[in-house]
Amino acid sequence: MIDNKKMCEILGAMAEKVQEQKDFLTELDNEIGDGDHGINLARGFAAVKEKMPSFADKDVGAILKETGMTLVSTVGGASGPLYGTAFMKAGMACKGMAEIGGKEFLAAFSAAVAGIKQRGKSEEGEKTMLDALCPAERALTEALGGGADLKEALGKAVDAAEEGLVHTKDIIATKGRASYLGERSLGHQDPGATSSLLLLQVFEAAL
């Protein structure tokens, strides 16, 4: 089970991972986007980390919601509203919960993915973060449905997200700044799908 203390630990690890991979994410974004993905995301998660002392007495849902609101207000570009929406929707799905297990995590993850689709008006197959997150959601659903524990199910989700990320190199972008490049976006992996995978890897490693 993931309680509020564990959730804070995971968010702290996410902040460290994003900071560590900031230049790599920005480099990917330089090729097909605005060149600010890593910088923006690192700024957002640094702000989340600063707020963490105030999370101590909050439930898991409230922590996720507060994280989302912080990301929306501190991350520029498209990724702020998208990641912010994802965390806020996940928080709403866990409203009032002191701890969450596999079933609750899946509900929160599905709510996050649905929120990204709605906010970005996008679907899987358009060279976005959804190309990592949608396969991860399917793998998570299948693994948990088959009786796997959350750690094992997240392992499957990470594998599926990795495959989805590799596949973004073969997709012509039709959403966001990358869509202006048309066929020139081929051969490049999507920065949002890359950061989504990184956050999932942090979650799995923390369990």
Results as ranks from 00 to 15, higher is better:
118 Q>T: 13
132 A>D: 01
57 D>I: 02
117 K>G: 03
42 A>K: 08
102 G>H: 02
44 G>Y: 08
135 P>I: 14
85 T>A: 12
102 G>T: 12
103 K>R: 07
74 T>E: 02
67 T>F: 13
132 A>P: 01
133 L>S: 04
127 K>I: 10
48 V>R: 09
52 M>I: 10
133 L>G: 04
113 V>D: 02
96 G>Y: 12
125 G>T: 14
52 M>S: 03
122 S>E: 07
83 Y>R: 01
81 P>F: 00
77 G>L: 07
84 G>P: 08
118 Q>I: 08
118 Q>N: 04
92 M>P: 01
114 A>W: 05
63 I>A: 03
74 T>D: 03
125 G>Y: 08
40 N>E: 08
48 V>Y: 05
139 A>C: 08
118 Q>S: 13
124 E>C: 04
57 D>E: 15
88 M>R: 00
121 K>M: 13
141 T>I: 03
82 L>P: 08
49 K>R: 15
51 K>Q: 15
49 K>E: 13
39 I>H: 00
132 A>E: 06
97 M>W: 00
134 C>V: 15
141 T>A: 10
89 K>N: 07
41 L>E: 01
60 V>C: 14
38 G>H: 04
80 G>L: 07
75 V>F: 00
80 G>N: 08
112 A>V: 12
76 G>C: 11
99 E>K: 05
105 F>E: 04
69 M>H: 10
111 A>K: 01
118 Q>A: 13
111 A>H: 03
100 I>G: 07
106 L>P: 11
126 E>I: 00
77 G>A: 15
38 G>E: 01
76 G>H: 10
76 G>L: 12
51 K>S: 13
97 M>K: 15
43 R>F: 00
131 D>Q: 06
73 S>L: 12
95 K>P: 00
100 I>A: 07
114 A>V: 14
62 A>F: 07
131 D>Y: 01
86 A>W: 03
91 G>R: 09
93 A>E: 03
95 K>N: 11
114 A>M: 15
72 V>W: 03
78 A>Q: 03
136 A>L: 11
91 G>Y: 01
67 T>I: 09
88 M>V: 09
41 L>N: 06
62 A>R: 14
123 E>T: 15
117 K>P: 02
136 A>H: 04
49 K>V: 02
107 A>P: 04
101 G>W: 12
119 R>P: 05
86 A>N: 09
99 E>A: 15
51 K>P: 04
88 M>F: 10
68 G>F: 09
57 D>W: 02
103 K>T: 05
52 M>N: 10
93 A>I: 12
123 E>G: 13
64 L>Q: 06
58 K>L: 15
115 G>K: 06
134 C>W: 03
55 F>G: 11
122 S>Q: 06
70 T>V: 14
41 L>S: 02
112 A>G: 11
